[in-house]
Design a protein around this nucleic acid. Sequence first.
DNA 1: AAACAATATTTGTATATACAAATGTATGCC
DNA 2: GGCATACATTTGTATATACAAATATTGTTT
Lengths: 148, 148
Amino acid sequence: MNVEEIIKTSKKMPLETRTLIHLTLVHNKLNELATNALKPFDVSLQQFNVLRILRGQQGKPANLSTLNDRMVTKMSNTTRLVDKLLAKDYVVRNVCPSNRRKVEILITEKGTEALSHMDQAVAEAENIMVQQFTKEDLEQLNILLDKF
Amino acid sequence: MNVEEIIKTSKKMPLETRTLIHLTLVHNKLNELATNALKPFDVSLQQFNVLRILRGQQGKPANLSTLNDRMVTKMSNTTRLVDKLLAKDYVVRNVCPSNRRKVEILITEKGTEALSHMDQAVAEAENIMVQQFTKEDLEQLNILLDKF
DNA sequence: AAACAATATTTGTATATACAAATGTATGCC
DNA sequence: GGCATACATTTGTATATACAAATATTGTTT
């Protein structure tokens, strides 16, 4: 990926600025690839993320706020995100019996089944994304990203 | 930034997956910081980006498609983005006399003036973002990001 | 010159996201 | 118990973005 080529500039920019633009370009690219990988399944990256979190609960229900805590990209409206998954019968939502302010969200069998297919598609896409990287590259990249 | 802490997981995830999540988290954080820096000026990051591109034209008008080419985050509707800048009198838009399909967009004096203030705010925010990095870190990070 | 294809932008529409206010429930205090 | 406060979620609304179709103009072919 060549930053200057992508944004079609010949201007020399400060290393700091270039790095931040670079990060955005990379993120956009990766986001697009992941979104495309999920397109056949008709779920957004956010919905996929929620399904993975719910599976990680291993049968334990999650409520909205814990769901939101664990999301990679926090969005201000997890209710409507779960609505979408409900409409697909990938999750069920019940009022929490011990505290009726809360809701309990659980992944369904249909959701688990669908998720396993999505996982495969996303894993393939991920592998393509990082194919140029050695293990050491990735470790180094993680160390650098930690500084943010 | 600790990935596992932010998304509140204790699960060991593959280095590839962790890297991609890491990138998204960093991007979200930087995006939020930049957006906040621009909030007092009532422009979005995208609008700021367009203004910078227009200034870079140095008096030469830009049309919509070149604008879109040079944007960091390409969006499907540059027309309406420019509408916002027009409403603030930061740009003017005219039909291109030599090819009436095209439009010519120019930054105004008011736009240039406003942009100079935004620049300062964004530059400060950028400095805070990269304060933990040495020059070598940034160079290394750019090299790694290029592999995507 | 008429017909067709290509180009540049605009408009329509559906969905996504951000932010604030509203709703319903629980808890602590007197 | 009644009242204020905090909590968890939902709803309303404005704005942003994605995608497709429509419009207007130009260039090309016959």
